[in-house]
């Protein structure tokens, strides 16, 4: 047992030494951990790894992407929002406001230090190709007549990226949204499977996810919730063209750290992420997989997540899904 005790003492001494070494101004001087709030192999994992590859190349330090998607990402957000503020544990920031409203976690815009946003994908509205519904106008008209007459898949969990903007649009249209029949799915693929099998009427998710089924002639996209038509999908009208209401939204991904990080450090990280974002390999990697490369710097991203919180709160209160009303 003495040998074990000796080992422990030595180890403890080493730790003290490591901690006592003063932090230098250069970031990063050791490996950085990036938490992806989703499992390995999905879109979030892919975009994070794409970014990590460039950061690694540019800084010469490993950027380890760690997948913590359990509990819809709650575990991953908790890990990095409670980590040391030294810039060595960062994570993916994506729509988060619903967690607090559903009583799942306490995250607010104050829980994170936003660094930058690098991706945004607008929500789109999809129907089966043989459906009676042919356009977004049809959907609005049907829901106005009877709000619960359509089975609408959220393309993932509900009160999330895809259904919040859609419901927001319906609110503008004056639909009694509390009665809308929103159905959660295990991801957009499962929702699309339900759509094609005839189990539901409408799926909400991003457009690239439906590419294969659209080319198979099984699915039709009737509208996208973005300000302008997407370059890759010029035939899909925007919600504004169809309804006249300029409602936009969808999912987005950014880099953030725990709250209260040193602004100088944040600026350093922002610069590194921006350089990675502008690299040709990152841009083409995003484009090939159909992800929208959208840049928001620290200031814009900070404002944006506040806006996200407000929209989510408003919609969820109208839906009656918010547990904590305020």
């Amino acid at each position: 047992m003495t040998s074990i005790r000796n080992l422990l003492t030595t180890a403890a001494a080493c730790v003290v030494l490591a901690v006592a070494t003063p932090a230098r101004a250069e970031w990063p001087e050791r490996p950085v951990t990036l938490i992806a709030v989703a499992g390995a192999g999905g879109g979030s994992d892919y975009t994070m790894r794409l970014l990590a590859r460039e950061l690694e190349e540019n800084t010469g330090q490993p950027f380890n992407v760690i997948n913590q998607g359990q509990g819809g990402g709650v575990i991953g957000y908790t890990t990095y929002s409670t980590a040391a503020k030294d810039g060595y544990t960062l994570g993916q920031l994506s729509p988060f406001a619903q967690f607090k409203l559903l009583g799942q976690a306490d995250f607010t815009s104050e829980s994170f230090t936003p660094v930058a946003q690098f991706n945004a994908d607008p929500a789109a509205v999809h129907v089966a190709a043989n459906s009676k519904i042919k356009s977004l106008k049809d959907i609005v008209a049907t829901l106005k007549a009877d709000p619960s007459s359509l089975k609408i898949s959220c393309g993932g969990t509900c009160s999330a990226s895809w259904d919040i903007p859609f419901v927001s649009l319906m609110l503008e249209e004056g639909v009694d949204v509390a009665k809308i029949n929103l159905i959660p799915a295990q991801g957009s693929a499962a929702g699309l499977q339900e759509l094609v099998s005839g189990g539901i009427d409408v799926v909400l998710c991003s457009i690239p996810e439906t590419d294969s089924l659209t080319s198979a002639g099984l699915v039709k996209t009737v509208g996208v919730l973005s300000a302008e038509r997407l370059e890759k999908y010029p035939d899909v009208p925007t919600a504004e063209e169809e309804t006249g209401k300029a409602v936009t939204g969808g999912t987005w991904r950014g880099i953030a750290g725990p709250a209260g990080m040193d602004p100088a450090l944040v600026a350093q990280i922002e610069a590194a992420v921006h350089k990675a974002f502008n690299s040709e390999r990152f841009q083409s990697g995003m484009k090939d997989r159909g992800f929208g490369a959208v840049w928001l710097g620290t200031a814009d991203f900070t404002a944006f997540i506040k806006q996200h919180e407000d929209q989510t709160k408003r919609v969820m209160n109208a839906l009656g899904t918010a547990e904590v009303a305020d």
């Binding site: 499992g39 390995a40 192999g41 999905g42 879109g43 892919y46 693929a189 699309l192 499977q193 094609v196 590419d211 294969s212 089924l213 080319s215 198979a216 099984l218 990697g285 090939d288 997989r289 159909g290």
Partner: peptide, 27 residues
Amino acid sequence: VFGIPGDAITAIVISVMFIKGINPGPT
């Protein structure tokens, strides 16, 4: 055939195919 992953493994495979421009689908 439809780009719908059956499990975590095929989800990764679909990702890899898309990246290289071999988009799954009947085409």
